[in-house]
């Protein structure tokens, strides 16, 4: 057990400690007294639905213009990454995230906002705000959900590998292609809109598609 912090009786003064009952550090079993562990009662289907809705809602918010982040480069938020500002090798593989859509990218009703924020909304004094079309949420599946589905699909295809006939193979390949196409499209769209060009801060991930060979031992 290591001593933490400047507690009484540092390493050089064992004498002080020996007479004391105070331990400078506690093991988990001491910090958490014995407890009869409760059990969560069975989750119903309805509750599951609520959870999925909630998580997908969160996804929508994260994808939207309202998830506001700092403009400064370096402090970059990664979907699921560790947000401590340190660039990592693995960053290049993270979802290329636009650092926020522009906050102005929404049909705000100017009258609802105080005068001092009108400029932030992009309203030049005297003129009306240019009309922006509402960006209805794409409601992309909560990424874990998607991952799990992909994983399940992967598992299945792995299991069926032996019995795979040509038709199946084609089907799966087609699906992959479609996914890839969609992703490419999305990325292009994202590039065009918004004030913040995320491209500057990331490697272009597209080149990596062909390389998914498995030699990527990302150092995490």
């Amino acid at each position: 057990m290591s001593l933490r912090g400047g507690r009484s009786g540092g390493p050089g003064r064992p004498g002080l400690l020996s007479g004391l009952d105070i331990k400078p550090d506690f093991t988990p079993s001491e910090r958490y007294p014995k407890l009869v562990l409760p059990i969560q009662s069975t989750i119903t289907d309805e509750e599951r639905r609520c959870v999925q809705n909630f998580l997908q809602f969160q996804q929508d918010v994260r994808d939207s213009a309202f998830y506001v982040v700092e403009k400064k480069p370096g402090i970059v938020e990664y979907e699921g990454g560790i947000n401590d500002g340190i660039k990592r090798y693995s960053d290049r593989f993270l979802k290329k995230r636009k650092i926020g859509k522009a906050v102005t990218d929404h049909p705000y009703i100017v009258d609802f906002f105080p005068q001092e924020l009108h400029s932030t909304l992009g309203v030049k004094s005297g003129t009306k705000r240019k009309h922006v079309k509402l960006d209805l949420a794409a409601h992309k599946k909560h990424f874990l959900e998607a991952a799990a589905l992909n994983a399940a699909a992967d598992e299945e295809s792995a299991e069926n590998a032996a019995e795979l006939n040509d038709d199946d193979e084609e089907e799966i390949n087609n699906e992959d292609d479609i996914d890839e196409e969609d992703d490419e499209k999305d990325e292009f769209e994202e590039d065009e809109e918004g004030d913040y060009n995320a491209e500057k801060y990331f490697d272009d991930g597209e080149d990596d598609y062909g390389d998914d060979g498995g030699d990527d031992e990302a150092a995490y």
């Binding site: 979907e79 990454g81 593989f93 993270l94 979802k95 990424f143 994983a151 990596d208 990527d216 995490y220």
Partner: peptide
Amino acid sequence: ARRPGVFAKIAREAAL
């Protein structure tokens, strides 16, 4: 936050 590696892989849709 404990599972960043997995997230990275999901993000690039690599096989898990």
